[in-house]
Design a protein around this nucleic acid. Structure first.
Lengths: 259, 259
DNA sequence: CTGTACTCTATACGACGTACAGAATAGCCG
DNA sequence: CGGCTATTCTGTACGTCGTATAGAGTACAG
């Protein structure tokens, strides 16, 4: 089984693929049969498969089937699954929504950025589950990073702080998106809604759970569940967390004399 | 392959296991051979295995080998891998460090809580990668939730806000811990340090990357990399994010008239 | 003792990524 | 045109996983 994401393969080949550089000598003269597919077609099929069934449905066999070829054919287009994941990640970042307007107060821009990133993770839930470390250095990731940094440019933050602010916001969005898709997966796999799941556990839990031993957990857990009509409400979690983080960033920016 | 975490199996059986309730009729009279192991032994072996090799090394075969039995033997102690993960998660939460003092200002308590949670995730990196949704409702999770809520009790927050604050803090720690262990895994799998990885990519990237097209990315990426002496510095990320989140929570608490 | 409930084992299935070997194809050279 | 060869695509195979199933061995109830 391939490790998640590249690192393994040849960095040069991976970068060529990401930037769609033709292998140098491949200019016109190709010897064998014409290629029936393209890297883009493979990447698109893989993205569609992962979007509909999650990362666990993303198999080389599955991608091949969608394209009407045998599994091993894919290996003439991409070195392996890890590099395919790199290409997928870069591709969806290149395509991500950019609705935020570059003018206006930074806080509105930051909120728009968070919503764009959340939208990216909602369209492609697997984005939130892939490691963000050593990202594929392709045009999509670069464009996203550039777009993110623009939100915090000119506010008095130094470069290291700008990078940290961007990461903090994205990691927050990632974690909300992961919870959201985990919740959907749990509902699907167990064929139970949150409410049904809770109903299945509550009476049994009552027998073993000592409310006097965990008074806050009993009180707050009940209140939170009732308020959300479910143990987990992603919209509330997103809004609550985003407000706190933006307030925290506002304090930093104010201390640096920024807008 | 088992889905991650239970949901699948019988909730009653899972809760019995979590709270170590003996199956009702099992009181004294057991018919067959004595059991050579115990649920606790299985859970301990599984935790040790996952701690040393990550979730991908956690296999039923591996756990069985550590215990000197055949894989199928484990199924007389736990219903399956998903329930075993539930038991592992609850066990490490029960054992987690609780060094924070219950007195003192809330901010110090919150920071101590974040460090305790980070320490939990550092000892058991797989904790940060498991879905937090529909957690195993065992004594360990309950104790952790109770401990977390105590930090925010009496500050003027309502119950729903207390729950959200606790989740925000834990999700932040989870994401830092995940990045940390992803970074270690990347270094291990690729047999390259971050610096070596960057050296391998920089000259190639220079050929395809247009710094004029991504001016902020070029400037900030270079500055952040240089400052951390690596593209990623977990300690800085943790301190930066924690300060922002605590500042944000402070603003909320102040607006509620809390300490 | 026999019957029965239980523990533990052996084998097997279908999934995965991909190594390897081979077949088919099409451009190059003569 | 024929042959060479680089390339594409296919078929088969290996070792991994969780766990279903069937059976072997063990110890208590009658």
């Amino acid at each position: 089984m391939a490790k998640e994401r590249s690192g393994a393969g040849d960095p040069a080949r991976t970068l060529e693929l990401l930037w769609r550089e033709p292998a140098p000598q491949d200019a016109p003269p190709r010897r064998g049969p014409r290629q029936g597919l393209s890297v883009d077609a493979v990447v698109r099929a893989a993205i569609a498969l992962a979007d509909s069934g999650g990362l666990e449905a993303l198999t080389m066999r599955g991608v091949a089937q969608r394209l009407g070829v045998t599994p091993m054919t894919l290996y003439t287009y991409v070195p392996g699954k890890a590099e395919l994941l790199d290409l997928m990640m870069d591709a969806v970042c290149l395509d991500m929504p950019r609705t935020g307007r570059p003018d206006g107060p930074w806080r509105a821009r930051a909120e728009a950025l968070a919503r764009e990133n959340l939208e990216l993770c909602r369209r492609h839930p697997w984005v939130a589950t892939l490691p963000a470390i050593r990202p594929p250095l392709g045009p999509g990731i670069m464009a996203r990073y550039e777009h993110e940094l623009a939100v915090f440019e000119g506010l008095g933050l130094d470069d290291v702080e700008m990078d940290a602010a961007v990461s903090l916001l994205f990691d927050f969005v990632r974690s909300v998106a992961r919870s959201e898709s985990d919740a959907q997966a749990a509902a699907r796999d167990s064929a139970m809604s949150d409410a049904q799941w809770w109903e299945a556990h509550a009476p049994l839990l009552a027998k073993v759970f000592d409310a006097e031993r965990y008074p806050l957990a009993a009180r707050v857990g009940a209140a939170a569940g009732a308020a959300h009509q479910s143990p987990y409400n992603p919209d509330y979690v997103f809004r609550f967390g985003l407000e706190r983080i933006l307030d925290g960033l506002a304090a930093l920016i104010a201390s640096r004399g920024g807008a």
